[in-house]
Design a protein around this nucleic acid. Sequence first.
RNA 1: GUGGGUAUGGCGCAGUUGGUUAGCGCGCCAGAUUGUGGCUCUGGAGGCCGUGGGUUCGAAUCCCACUAUCCACCCCA
Length: 433
Amino acid sequence: MWTASANKKRNNYLGGIILNIQLVKGTKDLYGSEVLLWQQLEKNIRKLCATFGIGEMRTPMFEFTELFARGVGETTDIVQKEMYTFTDDGNRSLTLRPEGTAGTVRAYIEHGMHNQPQPTKLYYISPTFRCENTQAGRQRQFHQFGVEMFGSYSPAQDAEAISVATTFLEQLGVKNVELRINSLGCTECRNRYNEKLKQFISSHLDSLCDTCKQRYLKNPLRVLDCKEQGCQNVIAQAPSVLECLDEECTAHFEKVQAILKEMGIAFTIDTKIVRGLDYYTRTVFEFVSDGLTVCGGGRYDKLVEECGGKPTGAVGFGMGMERLIMILQKQYGESELKNDTAIYIGAMGEKGLIQSQALTLQLRKQGIHAECDTVERSVKAQMKYANKINAHYSVIIGNTEIEQNQIELKNMKEGTKENIVLSDLIDVIKQRV
RNA sequence: GUGGGUAUGGCGCAGUUGGUUAGCGCGCCAGAUUGUGGCUCUGGAGGCCGUGGGUUCGAAUCCCACUAUCCACCCCA
């Protein structure tokens, strides 16, 4: 590990050149039992998506800055102060992706996916970057699992997207999950509501906090999100978005609810949900567990068009993997995940060492996890090692075994031994695994 | 960006009002009669106590700055 003192020593070797070989703020190495947890989570996601007919989309880690600035919204905090932006050789302004939707939309348009049978359903599990203050479960490089569904304006698509998230959280066993939904309406409804809200807020300015006094002009919806008590009191009296929806948007929202009900998906309507991203239209939703938002998403019918594609209805959601991992860790408690080893093939003497290496490879080629001694330790130490790596069986190969073509196969759990013919070892193990 | 806590071998922690060679648990390595694990015992390796300054005869310990980390706010996933 590159501790600071290790750096110091290293610097001496390198003649005083100072190397900053340390983790960058907000980044993390994943290894050991933690990475096993990640693998399991990813496996669950892939299986889930296969069930829902959602294909994987892998977009590049960086794109033109413009894409995110436009896609995510110029007024959002993400664009204004949290993006990792740099200029490359060709003087292009590039940015590490701060969220997954924009890149997916770009790919959808660029590859003419609207020519495929619609809807196009895509998911991604990708590293994502935001330059903001860190906290538990919030890194500067974090991982997002997201699903995007293109090509439908129907409320059925909203419901399908929500059902993916519900099923996933259910299967993961996340407890106390609550689904909250709301509708922001189409652009017209939204503008109408913004005006109404502005008027309402301006008549209650005195009770608002300082930030809200500023931001209500630009983005009055944000005030609904404020946690200050004073603002909360004002908001409680504020007009609801739902009152401003036109007929179509109202019908859409009602239909989403009807489908969810029939699907057996419980939800509550929360007119305070507005989401921080500018691109949402109509349905928006959040899954909250113990006060933490574990999933957020909604419909974004204008985004594909804004990014240069044909008008296309779309709906999606994102989940922070780090938060899911935290939940899983709590669930699994301290019990460490381990990779088991089928058999440990120890060796005694030179002939044994040589043969054990070859035998191990043969087993591995058959898909069996075998380990052998590559350190030339004592038999006792080898057995200790076999125990530590959770070997189910062990054998020691030495001169006697080779001469007699006989070995003692030991069952590590039971502590029992049995004699078998050395040349039969592979077949015997294959049968037992 | 704002406020508060923390920073000691791989991990988790002690280190008393500043005083000699900085400890403990887990882990790692090796032994406990010569070729066999899990228990126990013994020994060993591994830290200039986050970094840089300052106060002092003397600093892990006091002061300042920086960095990282955690918590809250902000925002989101």
